[in-house]
Amino acid sequence: MAKRIDVSGLNAFYGSHKAIEDISMTVEPRSVTAFIGPSGCGKSTFLRTLNRMHEVTPGGRVEGKVLLDGDDLYGSGVDPVNVRRTIGMVFQRPNPFPTMSIFDNVAAGLKLNGSYKKSELNDVVEKSLKGANLWNEVKDRLNKPGSGLSGGQQQRLCIARAIAVEPQVLLMDEPCSALDPISTLAIEDLIGELKERFTIVIVTHNMQQAARVSDRTAFFNLAAVGQPGKLIEIDETERIFSNPSVQATEDYISGRFG
């Protein structure tokens, strides 16, 4: 259930403003790839091009290729809805459906995908909540609204919702930035477990987090405000944090700017 992503020559625009320029990289299956870089460097925008969420923004436009095991996500005749069903996403702020119960939140994606059996649904919800390390905390109140949980629990609920449909890839856009340190730790542990089954891409502002959870790290930067963001380098996380090949990466990691 994990696929490789190959990106080549990718540009993304907001209207006439070019947000990211000429990005090419490979995301390995069953591993965690972290995107780091200063604010506004386009790492979140890039993440959103990987499941065609960028074009949802008014004026959003993408050029280039994103291959999921060889199939171009931006090929003609590809339905973005189907892309998003195979590439799940977790957002910066926990966003469970406020009007749905915990159970329905996790089951939401399955119900969208059409046919399902009631008993099947129960199994998937339990499995997903266990997968998100949330089962023990919520098993007695599955019919309560998801918005009643704490922030960290809500974020794990969102992860359970995303993995319930067994996506090929899981994209996470700063999933811990709105959480306290304990909840952050819980999510980081979870990421370590999930990478056995999924390809994971995580955007983070927290370099320690990138160092802790990721196998490979990509550093993004922009020349100046208003300029498009670019990929500076991508390498094994250990190398990026110990001996990066580009000076700018070392400057950023050692806190000399950004």
């Binding site: 998003r84 406020p98 939401a108 969208l112 995908n113 919702r161």
Partner: peptide, 27 residues
């Protein structure tokens, strides 16, 4: 309707009508 509610549905692979049903109308 908060963007993040609509994006939650979109990211699960909801069509436009399904976004309205899951996020917009309940809100």
């Amino acid at each position: 309707v908060p963007k993040m509610h609509e994006e939650a549905a979109l990211a699960l692979g909801a069509t436009r009508w399904e976004v309205i049903r899951m996020s917009v109308l309940p809100f």
